[in-house]
């Protein structure tokens, strides 16, 4: 069962521009050092947080959903084997490969790379990047939470959008 403290910890679902700027700096540094093509930061529900590098050829939303599903399934396998989780997953392809690294307890960094770099380099720099990202998330989690404020017209605008979209 999920405890109240787990619940509170898992409430971080609002990302502000300042936070994303900090995160993007870490991702850009990681891409440069490791020589990877791109990376995607995905929350465990499968929503994109941010991305870096060349993602033009990737359907980010679908990749995010599949990464989250893959990671969730692997975590269950880990539990069955008596592990808390497998913190790094690696899928090797003929041309491109992908590494999934857990950042904190609710975010996944998916890194796509080809033969311009090596698995060792990716793994080395990914670990450092994940530590930095985890520190940023920890800071976000620990600061007083301000309430995210949507536009006052959100309700009426949403109603109009739904009426418009779902006309048969």
């Amino acid at each position: 069962m999920v405890t109240d403290s787990d619940h509170l910890r898992n409430q971080r679902v609002v990302f502000y521009s300042d936070d994303i700027e900090q995160i993007d700096v870490v991702l850009a540094e990681f891409l440069e050092l490791s020589g990877c093509k791109c990376n995607l930061l995905i929350d465990k529900e499968g929503h994109m947080v941010t991305s870096g590098g060349d993602t033009n050829s990737i359907d980010e939303q679908t990749v995010a959903a599949l990464v989250a599903g893959s990671y969730a399934a692997t975590r269950e396998m880990a539990k069955l084997l008596g592990e808390d989780e497998f913190s790094v997953l690696f899928h090797q392809g003929k041309r491109d490969s992908i590494q999934l690294s857990m950042v904190g307890n609710r975010t996944i960094m998916a890194t796509v790379f080809d033969d311009q770099t090596t698995v060792g380099m990716v793994r080395l720099y990914a670990r450092a990047a994940c530590e930095k990202l985890d520190a940023i998330f920890e800071e976000i989690r620990n600061r007083p939470q301000k309430k995210a404020s949507l536009d006052a017209e959100f309700g009426s605008s949403a109603k109009g959008a739904l009426d418009f979209f779902f006309t048969e």
Partner: peptide, 28 residues
């Protein structure tokens, strides 16, 4: 479509209630 529209409305309504200033009217 009616099923999905209604549910999408309920989800956005709860979002509106939690994150938008009070004066905004309800979604569905």
């Amino acid at each position: 479509f009616p099923t999905l529209k209604r549910l999408a409305g309920m989800v956005l309504e709860s979002l509106n209630e939690n994150h938008a200033p009070r004066r905004s009217p309800s979604v569905v």
